[in-house]
Design a binder for these strands. Structure first.
Lengths: 114, 114
DNA sequence: TATCCTGGTTACCCGTTGGTAACTACTTAC
DNA sequence: GTAAGTAGTTACCAACGGGTAACCAGGATA
C-alpha cells in the first residue's frame, strides 16, 4: 500500500501558505471590502460593522505586512488614512470569488435544508 | 460619501460561510489529501505527518458533520475505516485549486524575496 | 469651552484551538 | 509472551484569537 502521495506534500504546503495569510475572522471581509476600491478606516468599519477598532487596526497592519494592502496617510484637516489593495492583494480576486461562490453553494445545499 | 456598499454585505456573508467550514489548521490539508481518493485514518495521517491523532479524529468528525466527507467502517480482520469526499466535498476542488495557486504565487512574490 | 470628527491604542478578560502524553481494544505475527 | 498495526480516546495544559471598555491626540465646529 502506498504510504503517501508524493505530490501531495508540495500542494499541501502551498495551500497552507495561502490559508495563513487569509486565516482569521476578519481578513477576508477586509480584503473584500477593499476590492470595491480604496477606503478609509471608518469606511471599512461601516462595511464590516461588527469588527472592533482594535481588530480592524490589527488586521490592517497584518495585511500591510503581507504586502496585500497599502496605507497612505493624508495631512488633511482631520487626518485621513486610505487603505488600498496592492497588485498582490488584487491577485486574491479569483480566490475570493471561489470562496463566495462556494459559500453560496454550501448555504443552499446544507444550511438551506435545516 | 457613501457609507457602505450594499452588495458587499451579501458577498461578505457568503465568504464567511465558506471560511467557517474551511477554517483551522487541518481541514484544508485533510480535504486535499482526500481529493486523491478515499483513504484510511492512517493513510491520511501519513499524508499529514504533523497532525496528532486527536486533531485528525476531531477534524474528520467536523468535516463529516458538514457533509464534506463520509466515514465507512469495514468489519475486516483489523477493523478498517475509510474516509471519502462527498459530492459536496468534491465541489471544493476549484476553491482548493485557487488556494494552492495563490499560495504558490504568494510564495514566489513574497516569501521568495526574503 | 465643549463636543464631534478623524484614526486609532491600551488594558483586561475569556473561550477556543491545538499540542503532548498516555491509554484503550482487538488481531495478527514473531 | 511481546510487539506491531488497526483506529482512535482521554486528560491536562499553554497560547492565541478575539471581545469590551476606556482612553488618546489633533483639528473643526458650535
Amino acid at each position: 500500500m502506498k504510504s503517501t502521495e508524493p505530490a501531495c506534500q508540495y500542494e499541501l504546503k502551498a495551500a497552507r501558505d495561502a490559508m495563513e495569510v487569509i486565516q482569521g475572522k476578519w481578513r477576508v471581509p477586509i480584503v473584500i471590502s477593499l476590492t470595491y476600491g480604496k477606503k478609509r478606516f471608518g469606511e471599512i468599519h461601516r462595511d464590516i460593522p461588527d469588527i472592533s477598532p482594535k481588530m480592524l487596526s490589527q488586521e490592517l497592519k497584518a495585511l500591510e505586512e503581507n504586502k496585500l494592502i497599502t496605507r497612505t496617510l493624508y495631512d488633511s484637516m482631520p487626518v485621513t488614512v486610505e487603505y488600498a489593495l496592492t497588485p498582490l492583494g488584487m491577485s486574491l480576486r479569483e480566490l475570493l470569488n471561489e470562496l463566495r461562490n462556494w459559500g453560496k453553494y454550501f448555504r443552499n445545499e446544507i444550511i438551506g435544508q435545516l
